[in-house]
Structures are given as C-alpha cells and as structure tokens.
Design a protein around this nucleic acid. Sequence first.
RNA 1: GGUGGGUUGGCGGAGAGGUUACGCACCGGAUUGCAAAUCCGUGAAGACCGGUUCGAUUCCGGUACCCACCUCCA
Length: 489
Amino acid sequence: MVQIRLTNTRTRRKEDLVPIDPANVRLYLCGPTVYDRAHLGNARPVLVFDLLVRLLRHEYGDGAVTYVRNFTDVDDKINAEAQRRKALGSPLSLEALVTERTEETIAWYHADMDALGAMRPDHEPRATEYIAQMIEMTRDLITRGHAYEAEGHVLFDVRSFPDYGKLSGRSVDDMIAGARVEVAPFKRDPMDFVLWKPSTDDLPGWDSPWGRGRPGWHIECSAMSAALLGPHFDIHGGGIDLQFPHHENEIAQSCCAHPGAGFANVWLHNEMLQVEGKKMSKSLGNFFTVRDLLDRGVPGEVIRFVMLSTHYRKPMDWTEAKARDAERHIEKWFFALVQAGYTRRMVEILKEGGVWTPMDAVVDALANDLNASGALAALHEFDLNGTAVQLAPFAASLDLLGFVSDWDEIASIARMGVSTVGEHPAHDRVAALLLDRQEAKRVKDFASADRIRKALEGVGIQVQDAPGGNYSFTLPADFDEAVLDKLDL
RNA sequence: GGUGGGUUGGCGGAGAGGUUACGCACCGGAUUGCAAAUCCGUGAAGACCGGUUCGAUUCCGGUACCCACCUCCA
C-alpha cells in the first residue's frame, strides 16, 4: 500500500491522506455551469480529479471511492440564453427553454470529457434537483443565527463565522479595505453573500418561505455535498479561482449548518490554464473549447498527455509545440503496444494471468501529490522492445493514467497505416511519381531519385524509405493537388 | 491596496539538504546510396543578495520580476 500525499490548500502543506473511512473515500468536485461548451480550462480540474480517483480506486479498491461532481444549472447566463430563444419566437416556456439549454450543454460536456478519457463520476447532481435541500439549509442557517432576511434576499452573516477567510488567508477587514464591489445597502456587512434572492416573473424561480426566488451560487454545493457525501468527507476541489469566494462561502455555510462535522478534510486546487503564454480569453483570440481541439484532429489522449505533463498546482501553458510533442509520444507508445499484440482480449488475458500491475515508479509519482509529470518520465524510461507480458507494467501504467479507453482502438490512434491519408484524390498521382523514383533507385540513378523526393517535400509530402525497397508517404490533410502540376522534375 | 503562488540547462518540465530527473532540440556514434525513422552516448541549470549547515538549486530572510484571486471565469 502506497501512502498518498496531497497538498492541502487549507493547511498549505503536503499531507498524508488519511481517509475518514477507507472503505468509502469521498470526493466532491465543483462542476461546470452548463451554459455553453466546456473550454480547455474547464478540462483541467476534471482531469486532475479523474487521475486522483483512478489512483484512489487503485489503492483502496474500485468500490471504495465515491466521486461527486455537480452541474450548476441555475445561472444568469443560462437564463439569458433561454430569454434570447424566447425572444426569437420559440413557442416553449421559459422553464422548458432553460431545460433545453442545460440538457444540450450537459450532453456536450459528457461527450467532450469522455473523449479525454475522464470517467463519469458516481453522482452528477444538478442544482435544480436539490432546491428543497438548499431551502432547508438556508432556513436552518437563519434559525442558527448565521443568516438573515432583507428585502426578499437571504444573506449569510460572515461576522457570525469567526473562521471566515481562513481557507484563502484573508481577513474580512482586509477584504473590505480593498473591495472594489458596490455593496447592496441592505447588507449588514459588505462581505455578506446571498443564499437566496428573489426572481422576477420573467426568470425561473421556486417558491420559498421568502417568496418566489432562486438560490445563490454557493449554497448548491453545500447542500449537494451534504446530501450525497454527508457533512464530513475527504476531498473537495476545483480551480484555484474558486478558492475565494466560492469555497470560502461553502465552508461558512456547511460548517455553520453542521457544527462540529468538519466538512472537507482536504482542499485541492488546480492552477489556471494559459494558451501560448497568455491567459485564455475571447478578446485575445486564443479562446477555444475542448471540442474545437477534437474537431481539429487533436486526439483526446494528446490533450490528456499535455494536461498531465504539468503539475496541477502550477499554471499550465497550452502550446501547439506541446501538442505535437505529446502526439509523437502517444503514437510511439501505442505503436509499440500494437506490435506486441495488444488488444482488448490480450489485456483480459494479461489480467487473468496476474501480470497487470502498473509500474512502482508511476504509482509512487502519482501518490506524491499527483506528480503526473514524474509518472510520464517513468514511462519514457521503459524499454518498449518486448513481449506483451514484458510490456504489461507499461500498459497497466497507461491504463492507470487513463490513456486507454478501448484497447481495440489503439491501432487507429497510433496511425498504423502511415502510407496514406484516406482517399485523397492526389494519392495515385503521388504514387506514380514515387514509382518513377523506385525505378531510378533500382538503376542507381540517385540524383533523379533525390530530385523527386526533394520536389515532393517542397510541397509538403514527406517520403520515407523502408526496409525491403518499400516506401511510405504522408499527404498533408489540406493538400492541394494543383501544386503537383508545377513540380520541377 | 490586500491575499496566495511562481522564477530550474537552448526550450518544456519534476523530485530530492549531499548521488543521472525526464522529454524536445543540439552534438558524437551505429544504421542508411543519401534523407527520414530507429538505437547508443556526451554536454548543458537552478532570478539576485544574505543567513542556517560540513554541504543548498532544495530550508529561512530580503530584493527584483512574473502570475492569479479580491468581479457567480475551472
């Protein structure tokens, strides 16, 4: 058994993970607000937690982990989209349009995260399914003196919770001093935040003791984690941008509603994603979704590789160079496995044979605060020349890291049929030119042979000789056949 | 202004108080008609200034620079 160590934001230290109940390790990840396609940054916490869950299942057993990730389906951006569709003349009700939008977004999210090899959580609660629990928790917080009603709103009283600000290392007084936000006049303290707010007739709403309204953002995670994991569980996480205010407010709500329970033992936060050294933003033109990358032909395994190559607590820079590098490694690894005879059936046989054990170096690296980069380094050092049995530790490591969703598909990812790209119309003409080259090589006219190859390389066609007088070539995906007419041969 | 984090070889990127990270690139060798690919191997670092220590890139303090959060963006 390997001791798993994680950096706990709450204590700012790397600590041994000691599960509350080793037979049921419980995690909660703050999931997406389902108003649009997931961008690349959204994928990072999902992959971090996916890796963590895989490691926990490996160490504690498949059935000994409960992983919850919510969908936030109450949100102004969702309402705005629903209202836009209504304005465009949709016959559906506003509630139906909201549901339509969230359903389609959730389906996209599932498809995109599946493509990255991220396992579905055990529970994926939606905020709209837990409104009753949120109302109950809000009422409870009022009863206990931690919340108050004002002008149709219910607000959490931060001064009633002395530990407020502890997670993010802020004091309420400091934050007020530097605050740039306009403060609603009915707040007792500028830092008080909304548990419940009123809805107008043109917005979704639910009946409550405080009138028709909707919940504040933070209360959903407190209510859903308590409902599915209990008031005290092991690990809670998300992007570092959620540390404040979202997680701070969750702690305040949950700890005040369940005094003495403890809430989450370990807080795990991943750093942000950048693109080519800059923050990803629509205004810089470097904003893209996971689907954009997949549609461009970047395999999910490659995206996963790049994500795992930087430690989760450091800012990660997505670059084209990294994607190319990752693709070469993935292809090389899968190629070696295909050559060793790896298929779904082969993996079953290896598992039955008791040799399906990941490399110690990989498990040790992951156990050390999810050092995925270190795990990849261990994989680089593995000798890929061997039989299926000899490669089993390597393959099981790839499996643990979540790189393989279907062993019968690895051949296509390794691009085994390198010589052609689909049914490109230029294929036969290029093949004819290369036949000339083969003839030139046969009669030792190397000058002509090299001229043909150089000419083809000049228009982007890579030609490689292989043993036995064979050759292969690769046509660029966007190859324009017309350039063949202008070749200088 | 407040809070948190970072600064490693040409580039990317880890761990560890003393022993090769690793990958890419480069260079040398093997192989090849030549390329490509592959295999083997060499070299190359720790922002700056102090302190602790027998010894620090790794711990502590300061300086500079960078980033994030403080705005319902993961």
